[in-house]
Simulated scan of single mutants.
Amino acid sequence: MKNLMLFVLVVFLAVNTVSAVEKPATKEIVGEWKYEVPSAPYGYNMGTLVIEEKEGKLLGHTKLEDGYKIDLKEVTYNDGIFKCGLYVDYNYVSIKAEVKGKNMKGMVDTPDGEMPITASKVK
């Protein structure tokens, strides 16, 4: 009987330990980021990335300087790397950037080629 109770206790602790594994820290990425893509066409070269977490999933949108919003697709953040995509004038554009503190630096992959992107957290 003692062996059975010990076995149940060990299994219970093992299950709780496995389920207590931390999720990737998304707190660092959530918020507003002012971005610049100097080589992008005027109107798309500056704006704000707004990244939120709802029900354990990342989502967001970009606000262009004229106020137009574009929803982000496939938003992920793992090991300091932010990735997402969005449709710009019917073309899918993907972003991959490394986050270091309140700064982000990476590349935007567009039909016209890759373009550098930088961003700074504002909130």
Score class of each variant (00 low, 15 high):
108 V>G: 01
5 M>L: 15
32 E>H: 06
79 D>Q: 13
62 T>H: 01
30 V>W: 12
7 F>S: 14
110 T>L: 06
72 L>A: 11
96 K>E: 12
66 D>W: 02
111 P>M: 05
24 P>S: 05
99 V>I: 15
91 N>F: 01
104 M>R: 10
9 L>T: 15
70 I>G: 00
5 M>R: 13
52 E>M: 07
51 I>P: 08
76 T>Y: 00
34 K>P: 02
50 V>W: 04
116 P>V: 08
28 E>F: 09
3 N>P: 10
111 P>D: 04
60 G>V: 04
71 D>R: 01
119 A>H: 08
6 L>R: 13
15 V>L: 14
10 V>E: 05
22 E>I: 10
118 T>A: 11
100 K>E: 12
118 T>H: 11
56 G>E: 07
62 T>D: 00
81 I>C: 03
36 E>R: 09
38 P>S: 02
72 L>S: 07
24 P>E: 03
102 K>L: 10
46 M>E: 11
82 F>R: 11
44 Y>R: 01
62 T>I: 02
27 K>F: 07
16 N>V: 07
50 V>I: 15
116 P>N: 12
32 E>M: 03
104 M>V: 14
60 G>T: 06
19 S>P: 04
53 E>G: 10
16 N>C: 15
82 F>Y: 15
58 L>N: 08
103 N>V: 11
18 V>D: 00
40 A>K: 04
18 V>G: 00
43 G>Y: 00
68 Y>T: 09
11 V>P: 13
55 E>C: 08
